[in-house]
Lab assay of single mutants.
Amino acid sequence: GSKLPPGWEKRMSRSSGRVYYFNHITNASQWERPSG
């Protein structure tokens, strides 16, 4: 298991139950796992 880039964390969408990734530094969110 590799770590996520700085700022990123795994989140669960309440509406759909899907996992997404959220960056608390930039407030960005995306479905794809961030690389870096």
Score class of each variant (00 low, 15 high):
R18D: 04
P5N: 02
W31P: 03
G36C: 14
L4K: 07
K10D: 02
I25N: 08
S2W: 11
S29H: 12
E32S: 10
S16G: 09
V19I: 14
I25R: 08
E32P: 07
R11Y: 07
S16D: 10
G1E: 14
R11P: 01
G1S: 12
G36D: 14
K3T: 14
P5R: 03
R14S: 12
P5Q: 03
N27T: 06
G36S: 12
E9K: 06
K3H: 12
F22H: 07
S15W: 10
S29G: 05
Y20F: 09
W8H: 01
N27A: 08
E9Q: 09
I25L: 10
E32H: 11
E9T: 10
Y21N: 00
G1Q: 12
G1P: 11
T26A: 04
S13D: 15
S15E: 11
S16F: 08
P34T: 01
G7W: 06
W31K: 06
G17W: 02
R14H: 12
Y21G: 00
S2I: 13
V19E: 08
R14V: 12
Q30G: 03
K3E: 14
S2R: 10
P5S: 04
Y20T: 00
F22Y: 15
N23Q: 02
V19C: 15
V19G: 02
G17R: 07
R11H: 06
S29I: 15
L4R: 02
H24Y: 15
F22S: 01
T26D: 04
N23D: 02
W8K: 00
S29A: 14
H24D: 04
T26G: 02
F22T: 01
R11A: 03
S15G: 10
E32Q: 11
G36Y: 13
E32D: 10
Q30M: 06
G17A: 06
P34E: 02
L4E: 04
I25E: 09
P6T: 09
H24A: 11
S35D: 13
S16K: 09
G1M: 09
R14Q: 12
R11Q: 03
H24W: 14
L4M: 06
E32K: 08
F22D: 00
S35K: 10
R14N: 10
G7R: 02
P34W: 04
A28D: 07
Q30I: 04
P34M: 02
P6I: 09
G17N: 10
A28W: 10
Y20K: 01
P34N: 01
S2K: 10
S35Y: 11
N23H: 04
W8N: 00
A28S: 11
E9H: 10
F22G: 00
G7F: 07
S13Y: 09
F22K: 03
K10P: 08
S29P: 01
L4V: 03
G36R: 10
P6E: 10
K10R: 14
R18Y: 05
P5T: 03
R33D: 09
L4G: 03
G1R: 09
V19Y: 12
S29M: 15
P34R: 00
S15L: 12
Y21H: 00
I25P: 03
R11M: 07
W31F: 10
Y20M: 01
E9R: 07
Q30R: 05
G1D: 14
Y21P: 01
T26R: 03
H24S: 12
R14W: 08
L4Y: 04
F22V: 05
S16N: 11
W8S: 00
R33H: 12
N23R: 02
N23W: 02
V19F: 11
S29V: 15
I25V: 10
T26Q: 05
Y20Q: 01
K3L: 13
T26L: 05
E9G: 06
P34D: 01
E32F: 08
E32Y: 08
N27D: 04
T26M: 05
N23G: 00
V19L: 06
S16L: 10
R18Q: 07
Y20E: 02
R18P: 01
P34Q: 01
R11G: 03
R14M: 13
N27Q: 13
G36A: 13
G17H: 08
P5W: 04
E32N: 08
W31L: 08
G17E: 04
H24L: 13
S16Q: 09
Q30W: 04
Q30K: 03
Q30F: 05
H24V: 15
M12Q: 09
H24K: 13
R11W: 04
R18F: 06
R33A: 10
I25T: 07
S16H: 11
R18N: 05
W31Y: 10
G36T: 12
G36E: 13
H24T: 15
P5A: 05
N27L: 14
W31I: 07
F22A: 02
W8T: 01
I25D: 08
S35R: 09
S13K: 05
S2F: 12
G7S: 03
Y21K: 00
A28F: 08
E32T: 09
K10T: 10
S29Y: 15
K10V: 14
R33Q: 08
R11S: 02
Q30P: 00
A28G: 06
